[in-house]
Amino acid sequence: MHVPEGFLDVPTSLATGAIAAAGVGLALRGARRELDDRTAPMAGLVATFVFAAQMINFPVGAGTSGHLLGGALAAVLVGPWSAVLCISVVLLVQALFMADGGITALGTNVTLMALVGAGIGWLVFAGLRRVLPRSTPSIVAAAAVAGFVSVLAAATTFTALFSLGGTLPVDPAKVLVAMVGWHTLIALGEAAITGLVVASVIGVRPDLVYGAAPVLQARELEIRLPDSQVVR
């Protein structure tokens, strides 16, 4: 769900725009650490992947559908700063070329989906990774929970912005109930798909999952001989 034009008033839109610009500025520095001089082509292709992933709709109920936000997924796969950068570019391209999400709401959308979505997603993931045992299943579980929390965090932040500068005469408490209720369903889909995708990438190319790096360092080479003897 992209926030469209005219949903929030001008001061709120400008304020979120400033927050988004500051956040993206930090992400520009951070992404160079994560991806070094490969940043432009790699982030470009990952942004394209996120865009493609967002095209897949899943039924939420009552004949409507939601789509993946992808903030937590991108953060686990390529690291938090690159994820913020990728999601921001996806939103920028969607607003400028596809009229998906308002031009004046771009700052709001970047704040919600890139900063809150990927940022909170990463914090939850990194926190859980520290607590859970060091194994790949815990990476998958942490990614799924991060996906769930990131969607609800974005929905809650939207409600907070709406109560500050919403243009509709609707009670913010009602908006909160509707947003959280609705997004709990979307968050369940997001959690399932985030976990499953991370699991499938770990299964094939574990070295590509940024969030799994600390777990993988603990593995050592095993050579299994035909008589089931294991040489380390």
Binding site: L28, T39, A40, G44, A47, F51, C86, S88, V90
Partner: peptide, 10 residues
């Protein structure tokens, strides 16, 4: 960098 990333994405 943002312009370059957008270029690759497009």
């Amino acid at each position: 960098l943002i312009v370059q990333i957008m270029g690759f994405m497009i």
